[in-house]
């Protein structure tokens, strides 16, 4: 139990307004919104992909902490910056993370053709696979969460962090499909974004503060 768990969930939750508009629209277009089961499988696939990404990134940065004693502290500073950027992003200052998304869209070019091979809406298995592929969409929110996963120390807690982040986005993505559009308007309302953004920036600054003291 530590702060990072809370941070992961908050990041997911705070960002879920964005998730709704972007991925929710996709899910709606694909017709997943029509049944709670499909929506569930789609989102599960998406979250699993996040966890895999978390595992990979954390594994890659695992070595850094071995090589350089202060490596993790620098990473923590990076993560703090990312957190602040994410907060700004929620304030509608989208530019903050666009460069990251752009980087991600190169990766997406390789994955996107795969999505076309899947039948549009078939069994839960296909929906799950589709969710896994869509999990790699270029998304600033995911990337900033990944920087946190990177500094978690070992690959498994990296995967765990991303899993929690995914879970944070889950209620909004899932519940709006099942209950009502109203929740979406709450999550997208400026007041909510404002609070969430402020919160994330606060987290980010706190992290930077702690990391700076450790240097």
């Amino acid at each position: 139990m530590n702060i990072d768990v809370v941070a992961a969930l908050v990041m997911g939750l705070a960002g879920s307004g964005h998730c709704l508009a972007m991925c929710g629209g996709l899910a709606a277009a694909m017709g997943y919104q029509r049944s709670p089961m499909r929506l569930f499988w789609y989102n599960l696939g998406r979250i699993i992909s996040y966890a895999i990404a978390g595992f990979i990134v954390a594994a890659a940065f695992f070595s850094i902490s071995k090589v350089h004693a202060n490596g993790l502290v620098y990473l923590r500073i990076l993560a703090g910056i990312m957190m602040v950027l994410l907060g700004l992003y929620l304030f509608r200052w989208n530019r903050a993370l666009l460069w990251l998304e752009k980087a991600g869209s190169y990766l997406w070019r390789y994955i996107q053709p795969l999505t076309q091979k899947l039948p549009a809406q078939k069994t839960s298995g296909y929906v799950f696979l589709a969710g896994m592929l869509w999990g790699w969409l270029p998304c600033g929110l995911v990337y900033s969460a990944l920087t946190w996963a990177a500094l978690s120390g070992d690959p498994f807690s990296g995967a765990g962090f991303m899993l929690l982040f995914g879970l944070g986005t889950f209620p909004a993505m899932f519940l709006t499909g099942v209950f009502s559009q109203k929740l979406a308007t709450v999550l997208q309302s400026s007041s909510f974004r404002w609070i969430a953004g402020l919160l994330l920036i606060g987290y980010g600054i706190a992290t930077l503060f702690i990391a700076a003291k450790q240097l």
Partner: peptide, 27 residues
């Protein structure tokens, strides 16, 4: 607005699902 939306929209068009944009509720 972003690369994510760009990717999603492209895919929706490519898979012939543009009716989604026609019939969705715009709030």
């Amino acid at each position: 607005c972003c690369y994510g939306c760009h990717s999603v929209a492209t895919t929706i068009v490519e898979q012939g699902l543009t009716h989604f944009y026609k019939y969705r509720e715009t709030k």
